[in-house]
Structures are given as structure tokens and as C-alpha cells.
Write a protein that binds this DNA or RNA. Structure first.
Lengths: 221, 221, 221, 221
DNA sequence: GATTAATCGAGACGGTACGTCTAGTCTTTAC
DNA sequence: GTAAAGACTAGACGTACCGTCTCGATTAATC
């Protein structure tokens, strides 16, 4: 996963604050405050004033570096991922939380079921659920945030499925005319919708079934 | 589609306002104001004060009958559906806006593609898109509203797919062991996610492809 | 003391409600509710809705017969006086609560001290203090109510002092060129101001002193 | 007259706003708005929202520094006095609007008549009458405000009478056993009551008469 | 190591909207 | 037709946050 620390601003950007002088301590405190408040109170009751107060930070420090509550939370959440990835790496762990590729054991169905099971576990963990859900909701209504959310969080993960499906196509396990970018939605989107909209419960059995249906189709063979 | 007018309260409901004295004119005006404001300004900039002002109504009249902005919008949207349904019926129109069943011509793929194309058209119409999206977003974060949203708006439509799929099963066009409630998600959820999260554009060609993939599966036959 | 029951409206007053059909029970209940609420909550927290609720009466019944909260309280207070007077009469009591004349024992100073002591006692009784004070305050700011308050409550009492002082003049105890209407203010107004504005405490000793100073003057004789 | 600018808060007063950061411009604008609105609309129709709007100030700025509408008006009125006093001083004027002492020409009656005539003029000036009356009325009913009103506005003026009367006592023009604090009420309170309660008109002739009666007494000499 | 300039915590500011309360009017049903 | 009941429009209340602004007090880079 890419490091989401905001890149150093160009020096000609005269109105922007000087990134080199930025307080790392405050940044961390704001991330933690934002995430914990969203978990405790939910997104709508989390306020910028509240984040500033809990972080022991002036409001202006937030407004200086972020454009909105959603923006803070998005970065905080991205940072959470980076942290986890970094922690995994440091533990000498080869397969970190969000790997750069889906395992390819030759058995497409098993590989897909594996990742989806891991995703289910993550979605059921309140630590991820609350802020992730809050961001998703905001992105539904706020187009700009939504696009950022998709580009930075969703799309990279989906690309992994594209890669795996393409490999399967080359191995003759998926029909060559199938568009992988659409194909992945057959099992990813149902999970996403059940989780986001609570249309029905999610489980390992459920995602397993999705993979089976998607690979074999509904019509009799 | 069911009539969503709130049912008369039981007489023992002592603290609640008297439904029989409710002003129908104000109710209608509030629905219209809420929907038009959401379309014009978007959900977050739509305020209860604004709705009251545009509807020519006291704020208390809104607070008396609804618990939140989302609640107003949900009922307004449900009412919109009822109105459309009623209008269709009055026009002696057999196939109303949201039919009680998906057409069954014997050709499952064609029938599914037909409904999905209609859904795509609806989702691309700003008149529906804006409020629907706002409600969906709120439902993502507010569990109670979310469940109501799903129960009253989403689930009834999904049930139509269940029915059509079951008919197809009986006709031997869908494998008998397939669970229709899950099967329908193979083509419905991808569309939902693309629309809600803007992960990619939606079109008739896209939904047609979804139906083909779902029915035939991704694996070679 | 005059009976303060509002006089029957003239029949040509077409917009006014029909007095002959007025509910006496409601009127009494409103008076009692108004007075008790003012005593309990104070004037500003006493609301028309509150009076109606406690009296078991519709709001419109109050608006039909009175023009304002102050108006209700004024009549309620006048009625309180009437009731007391009537009660006194019925008890065969010659000297009722508010007599038609100040006693004339020949000793002007003693007579004045007597009435003033009685007045002090009344002003210290919360039952009278609270509503009386509320009315006075409202009258300070609302000129119309103020004039009614003075005409119906204050002036009749002051007239008794005028009468007593004139008698004293005829008896040669007060200089003939003195204007009794002004003279009475020398001892009545100080008491009124101390009570109304709380500039200093009131007591029998205080009013006794006032009478002495007023009769003998401040300058050495 | 003392300067009524609120004193700097003690540093241990942890929850209170920081006085040193207070906007002087807003304070002035609020005073002016409050006074002008009371003159134009009267006290009851003057609202905090109205004051904020006319002053071009957020409501919270009022609530931050004052506890009630009456509190705002009281300070505004005190400030009005301070301003007048300051203006007088700056004009090199020895005898400012509200002098620190009542003139002592040796003629007690004349001196008293002088101040009282000036007071009558002030009470008849709508610029002072309206807010002063509003505050007095509120003080009648709201004990806390009443005590502040008396302590800051009324008592300092009354003290001047006490001083003058004591001087007169030493000069043998007033009986030594007379209590000046009570004596002054013989001419001050009647004027106050006529003005406050509108029991009768006020004029220079009237206050002259009051002084004569009070000094010489009503009884024949 | 001293200078200097930007960031920092803090919080007052002008505003907007909240959800509540009451005013005074209007409507319905019962007597 | 008056009454009780209570829903209605209207708008002020006092609170909570918004996003901007100023204020010293750090603090980090430059001299």
C-alpha cells in the first residue's frame, strides 16, 4: 500500500502553509482524536471543535491543513492503513494487512474466497467499520470526497482482483472475452452493498457462495 | 406499491399529536419543499428551517410530525412513489412505474436486462438521484433510518427479482440449488455500487453485460 | 370598594362575544390559576398556556375575554379584593378589609400610622406582594395598563387619605393652604418606593417615622 | 460618577471568557443598539436577536458577556451616564451632568428645588425615560436586577441628598434627630412614584411644593 | 547562539441552524 | 354559540459549531 503522507507542497505555492514546519505531534494527535471520536460518537456528532479539543490543538491547526471534517477523517483512515502496513512489515511479516497482490495458488475460487473472507472479518470489526462507513456515507453525497475515497481506498484494492482475474484468464480458468473490471463486481459489490446498506448479514459462507455463483453462473451447464 | 401514508395512531397513544387534525395541505407542502430543496441545494445544505420557510409552515409543524430531516425526506420520497403509482393507475395504465412483477416473457436474460435498463434510466435522472442518494447516504450511517430505507424502498423491489428468478428456476433456466436472494445481487449490487460510490459509470451496455456474466458465469463452459 | 365584575357589554358591540353565555366557572378557574401561577413562578414565567392548562380551559377562552396576560392578572387581582370585601361583609364585619374611610379618632398622626401599618403588613404578605408587584411592574412599562392599574387600584385608596387630610384641615390640624393630594405622597410614596424598588426595608417603625416627619417637617420649629 | 466598565476578571475565574480579548467595538455597538431599540420599540419588543442584528454582532457575543436582556440594558444605561460624565469633564465643565455633590448655597430649600427641577427635566426627556423606565420595571419583578439597579444607579444619587441634608443639620437648618436617609424620601419618593406609576403629572412647581411641605411639615406651626 | 518568521494553542468573533417554547389564530367536535 | 382541545404560522429563545480572525508563546530554520 502506498504511503499516504501528504507530499511536500511546491515552494511556489505562496498561500499554503510551510509543510516543513508542520508539527508531527499535532498531526498524530488529530488523527487519533478524529478516529476515536468517530468510533465513540459516530460521524455526525464528531465536530472539528471536538477533534481540536481532544487533540489539544487549536482549531486553526486543523483548518490550516485540512479542508473539511471528511478530509481529516479520510487522511486519518489512510494513515491507519499505513500504520498497520508498517507494523506488519516491521514484524518481518511478508504478507501484510493489505497485500500488493492476491495469492495465486492456481485455484481461483479458493484464492478469491480467501480474500473475501478476510474482507468480511475487517468489515465486522467496529474499529474499521465506523470510520469506513462514515467516509463511504459522506462520499455518497459529497462527490469530490467520494472520488477521492474511491481513488485512494477502493480502487487500489479492486485492482488486485483485476490482476488475479487476468492471471486466471491467461491460465484458461476464466473466459477470455470477460472484462475483469466488471467480473470482480459480481462478488465484491454484493458484499459491499450488504455491508453498506445492511440489506442482509454478511459471513464467510455468504462470500463463498458468491464466488461459486459468479464463477459458474446461474444457468444450468 | 403500498400506500405509505402513516397509519392512524392508536387512541391510547396519549402524548402524540392528534393525527385526525393534521393539516394535509401542510404535509404536502413540506414534502414538496423538502424534495425541491434537496434537488437544488443537496442534502447537507437543506435545513429544516429552509423546508419550513419554503413550505410556508411553522418549524414546529415539522418537529411535531417528523423526528429528523432524514425522516421528512424519507416520507417525502415514499410519497413521491405513491403519487407516481396513483397517477399511473388513474391513467388506466396497466404497467405502472414500479410494477408488481417483472415481466416474464420466458426469456430470463431479456427480462432482467429490461428492468435493469429502466433502473439505470431512473438512477441517471437527477429528480430521483439527489434525494435517493441523500437517503442512502444517511442510511449508511444512521442504522435505524437505514433499516427503514431498506425495508420500505429497497426490499420490495428486490423481492420482484426473487419472484422472477424462482419462476425461471421452475422453468429450468436457473439451477435449482441457487438461492435467488443471493443470485439477484450478482447483477443488482454492482449497479448499486457503481451508482452509490461512483466507482465507474453506469449504462445499458453495462447492465446487459452484468446479466450475461451472472447467468453464464465467468468460467469457461 | 366597587365590584370589579366587568360590566355587560352593549349588544350593538357585534364583534364581542355574548357575555350572557359566559361560563362563570371558567372565569373563576382562570383567576385562581393566574394568581397561583404568579405566586409560584413569578410573573414572567407565568404564561397564558400555563394558565389555560391549570384552569382546564382552552386558550381561546382566555383570548376571548381578555386582551393580555396583564389584563387577566389585573382582573384576577381586582376580583381577589372584591372577594375579600364580600367575605368581610358577610361575616357581619363593619370594618371590612379595605374600608371606605380611614378611621377618624381625632388624632391624625395615630390614624395615619394605623393605615400605613396595615399597608406594610399587606405588602409583606407574599400572597399580595407577588401579583401586585407584577402588575405594578407591567404598568410601569405598559402605559395603558398602568393607567388602569392606578385608576382602579391605587387612586381609590389614595382618595381615602385625601378625605382624612381634608377632615384634619377642617379640624385645624393641617395648614389650610396644603394640597392634600400632594401631602399624602409625603408618607405614601416613600413606602411605595421602598417596596417597589427595594431601596430599603419597610416596617411599622419606618412608616411611623414618615408620618412624624411629614406632619412636623424637617426644619426646626 | 464612577466608571462602570466591568472590572478585569480574576485569572482564577477559569470558565469565564477572556476579558482582555473582548471587542470594544462590539461592546459599543451593542450598547447603542440596545438603547435605540428600547427607545423605538419599548422594552418587551426589544429582543436579543434584534440587538445582535442591529449591532452587526453574533448572538453569542451578547450571551458571552451578559446574562440577560435586562443586564445588557443596565450596562448600556450605565455607560450612557459614564459617557455623559466624560463628555462634561472633557468640556472642562466643572459641574458635570450628575455632580458629585448637591450645591450648598446655604439655602437648603433652594438647593433641593434646583436638583429636583433638573431631575424632572431628565425624567421628561424620552431619551432617558424609556430605558430608565424599562430597567425600573424589570427591577420591580426581577429582584437581582432590581438590587443592582438600585445599588448602581439609584443609591449613589440618593447619597448626595444625604450629604446635603447632613450639612443642613450641622448648620441647624434641619432638626438634629432627623434621619437624612428617610428625610430625603419625603421629596424624592413622591416624584419617583408620580413618574414611575403615572399617578399624576410632574413639574417644577410640583417638586418645589414637595420641598416646602417636607421642610415645614403639614401641621400648623 | 541569536534572530526571525511561521506554526502553535487558545479562544473571541460574525454567523447559521438547531430544537424548544410561547404567542395569538384557526379549526374541529361536544354540549 | 360558547367551550375544550389542540394544530397551525410565526418567531424569539439559548446552545452548538461553523470557519475566520487575532493574540502571545513556542519552535525550527537561518544567520
Amino acid at each position: 500500500m502506498a504511503d499516504h503522507t501528504p507530499p511536500p507542497r511546491t515552494p511556489d505555492d505562496s498561500r499554503r502553509p510551510d509543510v516543513s514546519r508542520r508539527s508531527e505531534k499535532s498531526r498524530r494527535a488529530i488523527y487519533e482524536a478524529a478516529l476515536s471520536l468517530v468510533v465513540e460518537l459516530g460521524y455526525p456528532k464528531t465536530t472539528i471543535e471536538g477533534i481540536a479539543a481532544r487533540a489539544g490543538v487549536g482549531k486553526q491547526t486543523i483548518y490550516r491543513w485540512w479542508s473539511s471534517k471528511a478530509d481529516v477523517l479520510l487522511e486519518a483512515f489512510l494513515d491507519l492503513g499505513d500504520q498497520a502496513a508498517r507494523a506488519a512489515e516491521e514484524a518481518g511479516y511478508a504478507g501484510e494487512r493489505e497485500p500488493y497482490a492476491i495469492a495465486d495458488t492456481g485455484d481461483l475460487a479458493a484464492d478469491l474466497k480467501g480474500v473475501l473472507r478476510a474482507t468480511v472479518d475487517e468489515l465486522l470489526d467496529p474499529k474499521y467499520d465506523r470510520p469506513y462507513r462514515a467516509l463511504a456515507a459522506e462520499g455518497v453525497v459529497d462527490e469530490e470526497l467520494g472520488r477521492t475515497f474511491v481513488a485512494k481506498l477502493l480502487e487500489p484494492s479492486l485492482q488486485l482482483y483485476v490482476d488475479r482475474l487476468r492471471a486466471a484468464q491467461e491460465a484458461g480458468q476464466v473466459r477470455p472475452e470477460v472484462d475483469p473490471r466488471i467480473a470482480l463486481e459480481l462478488f465484491v459489490s454484493p458484499l459491499a452493498q450488504r455491508w453498506l446498506q445492511r440489506t442482509a448479514p454478511i459471513s464467510h459462507a455468504y462470500t463463498d457462495t458468491l464466488v461459486d455463483y459468479a464463477l459458474n453462473g446461474l444457468a444450468p451447464r
